[in-house]
Nucleic acid binder design. Structure first.
Lengths: 248, 248
DNA sequence: TATAACGATGTTGTATACAGAAAGCCGCAT
DNA sequence: ATGCGGCTTTCTGTATACAACATCGTTATA
């Protein structure tokens, strides 16, 4: 974990990270072609690694091929986001079911429980500040990653990682938007109940229950999506610039 | 094959298709590095489109990055294939549920029914020949594609297409292996019952039922996987060379 | 004999040159 | 004013050159 570890990153990775950030920030108009030469100037890499990054981002779903050549940033309807969340919930449900059916070692389960306890501590602080939310997000991500590990399925891991690469489909996508909402505390309490319940289900080998819980858990994000879309906090969710509002 | 009919396809597509075929045929040993220069000679394209194809195949899951650079063909355990089939079933189940909940237009439903009828005709021929199976495979693929369309969800379409890009996870992956098995006729009859039942469920807006049916439908592939792995017909399934048998 | 250092060779990652095609622009005719 | 045609410019897709790096065989030494 040395600090200079980032210095030796390849040009391709550099291009990928910068480009993704650029796209998510909305700096590139959705639908219009991303000029490679312009990006070369902007990112300081040559066209070769840049094009590699473009191919990867296309597979990721963030950009799409233009029939006449090149790529353009995609725009997402509310429904696309809804469906992406539903897909994530379904796959996480599958992960939970497999974990329950195949059995999770006590050691791994203990690790997940520790994670939940750490979240408990944050929620227990009462009225949560912005920093509290900043503490929450990585822990929440960690919980979801550990749950995925419990299924011990490499194909599923790949699929979930891909499904959550769209930022608004990820478990933490709308958490930050939540922070500014009055309902936030209540939603987190419910989410935490889900976390605890799914562990219980897995421990008891209750596959169907575990699956249902994770599905319902993802549906909290649906609600957050609705709330965020109808409030000013939308700007807090990464990639918000790519969301095409129904009104126009 | 050496005809000029395909002249308009790009070098990248050419490289992608040829490489995929090479990998699936097992011509490239799993785990060992795919030499770009060797592929350049073999496929007749330059390194640039070849590398683009490699990146795409890596996202597809057919090859993996080697830490020291380059890519290698992946090997798949029986469990990986099992899980991939389970993932497909889960996602197709989601598609069926969404189609049921959101409603499918009578016109689209009629198209799916036509497809089922066409399959009926094939199965009705009695003892099926190899050509009968050759007729069956594209129709079966068409059914699954149409079902996916019924959900009218672009994110889900992308995800399913990706999940089925692994040949042994695709709906038609083990059908050809099935052909040589005595149980084949019975399995097809059951599969067809599933096809009919899921349409009925969607038509009646029975989301949960539609979902369960598609999950169970994919589990037929599990059985086929077991049978194929324990018989000589394994060679018929595309990508069989990538399957690492438990024994060895 | 085993091991470590070293050099030769081949490899990938990156930059760049080039050709063909798309897109925009200007002028012209209606 | 508007649509069309041809031209120019710019772009992408592809090939290739080059440098840093990994790999492997060889040799010398303990």
């Amino acid at each position: 974990m040395s600090g200079e570890g980032e210095r030796t990153q390849s040009q391709t990775v550099k291009a990928l990270l910068s480009l993704r950030e650029l796209i998510l920030s909305g700096a590139l108009g959705a639908g219009e072609r991303i000029s490679e030469l312009a990006m070369v100037d902007r990112l300081g890499v040559s066209r070769t690694p840049l094009r590699t990054a473009l191919v990867k981002l296309e597979q990721e779903g963030l950009i799409e091929e233009i029939p006449s050549g090149g790529y353009a940033a995609r725009a997402f309807e509310e429904r696309d986001i809804f469906d992406s969340i539903e897909i994530r919930g379904t796959l996480e449900g599958l992960a939970a079911r497999l974990a329950a059916e195949r059995g999770a070692s006590p050691m791994r389960l203990a690790g997940v429980k520790d994670c939940v306890s750490a979240i408990d501590e944050i929620i227990g602080r009462g009225a949560m500040s912005a920093e509290d939310f900043a503490d929450y997000v990585p822990l929440n991500a960690r919980f979801h990653a550990m749950l995925l590990d419990l299924a011990q399925s490499e194909p599923l891991r790949r699929e979930v990682e891909r499904a959550t690469s769209l930022p608004f489909a990820s478990p933490s996508g709308f958490v930050l938007a939540q922070a500014s909402l009055p309902e936030s505390q209540r939603i987190l309490v419910i989410a935490q109940e889900h976390h605890r319940a799914v562990i219980d289900a897995i421990q008891n080998r209750e596959g169907t229950r575990a699956e249902s819980i994770m599905r319902e858990h993802a549906r909290l994000a649906h609600r957050n999506l609705q709330l965020a879309l109808r409030s000013a906090s939308l700007a807090l969710v990464p990639g918000a610039a790519l969301i095409r509002r129904a009104g126009g």
